[in-house]
Each structure stands twice: as structure tokens, then as C-alpha cells.
Amino acid sequence: MIFEQILFFVAAAGAIGGAVGVVVLRNPFFSVLALVGHLLALAVLFLLLRAEFVAAAQVVVYAGAVMVLYVFVVAYIGGIEEPIGPSAGPLRVLGPLFAGVLLVEIAIATIGSGLRAVSSTGPAVADDFGSPEAIGALLLQKFLIAFEAASFLLLIAAVAAVVLAQRRRGLEEAGGETPLQIGRRPPTGPQAEDPAAAGSGGPAGRAIDERTPTVAQGS
């Protein structure tokens, strides 16, 4: 019992600390990492609730796949030097207000129902509760329609993302950079399409030319 309680309080503190960290930390990269910590702590809590499949899915899908993309994007776009600026305008008032309302609501729910079960041992659970088989049976038999509707919704979202990305391709035809060219210097030297134009590609291209004389210009 002691081990379970210690684990619960460590995970609960981790979950709350992570959630607070997401909001409080000024550096977006650390915010994302706090969110990762929060999600991992939630996975431990799921494990304590004997929902091992949900815990594993939580780690694989959220901490693994979704947060990797978050970290990826934030590491590229938001550097250490660019912390999020102070929030301005109505958000400064409305944000804490809504957070407070939510806190009161959850507190009412917890005190009203959850606290009554603290001294009891909790409901009896079946042996295979939370196992992949049990979850699969629930999703594909009892909640089949809701499950399929959710997957259909995700499919629509994925198709919509593709369509939106497709529309932006108009930029590329108008002379923008292709994804392969982003961040690359224009080719210089013998690799340039037009050797005569090599070296006039811009400040970055010229910087290279000063150190490495190109063969194409010499011949």
C-alpha cells in the first residue's frame, strides 16, 4: 500500500507541477518539456488505476508522437532568445477568471463525489480490466459507433490538413522556395546552373566564394 501511495503522490505532484510549468515557464521549449513531464505523470496515474493499455497509449501517442512534433517545431521556431511576451489585453483578465471558474467547478465535483471514496478500498475490478483485450472489446463492440465516428473525424481533419497544405503550394509556383531549398545557399561553383552567375547569389554565397575559389570561374 505504501509503495502505491508514494507513487501516487509523486505522480500527482508531477502532473500538477508539469501543468503549472506549461503555463508559467517563459521559454516555450521548457514549456513543452513540462508538458511532456505532465503527460508522463498522467501515464503513471493511469497505471495506478490499473489501465495499463491507456498508460502505454498515453506514452506512445502523446509523449512519443505528438510531443515529438511539438518539440520539433518549438526547437526550430522558438529559440532561447525569444521567450513568449507578456500576454496583453482582455486575456490578462479573462484567462485567470476562466481558470478560477474551472478550479471551483472541479473542486465541487471532487469534494462532492471523489472524496467520499478516499477511505474505502475502491470498486472491485475484473482481472483483465485495462488489458488490451478488454479495451479492444469495449471499443469494437460496446462503443463501436462512437469509436468509428471519432476515427472518421480524425480522417476528415487529416484530409483537411492536406488540402490546406496544398493550397499554400501556390506560393511555390510564384517563385517561392521549395521545401528542399529552404535554408540552403544557392549553388555556387561548378554546381551552379549558370556558372557566370555563381558568386552573386547573395551575402551568404559570397562569403563562401571568398575562401574557396571556384573552378568554373577559372576555366
Binding site: F29, L33, V36, L40, A43, E52, F53, A56, A57, V59, V60, A63, G64, A65, V68, V71, A75, S131, P132, E133
Partner: peptide, 25 residues
């Protein structure tokens, strides 16, 4: 020997990425 065996493998496989990512960053 866990009932989620393969998922356990994936779960820690995906966390191991943070070692590389944080180290590099």
C-alpha cells in the same frame, strides 16, 4: 511479462528520443 509487451517496447523507444533531442538542443 506484461500484457502490453509490444507497447512497452514502443513507449520506452519513444521516450529514448528525448535523450537525443535534449542532448542536442
Amino acid at each position: 511479462d506484461v500484457s502490453i509487451g509490444l507497447l512497452y517496447f514502443f513507449a520506452f523507444g519513444s521516450i529514448s528520443f528525448y535523450g537525443l533531442m535534449l542532448g542536442g538542443w
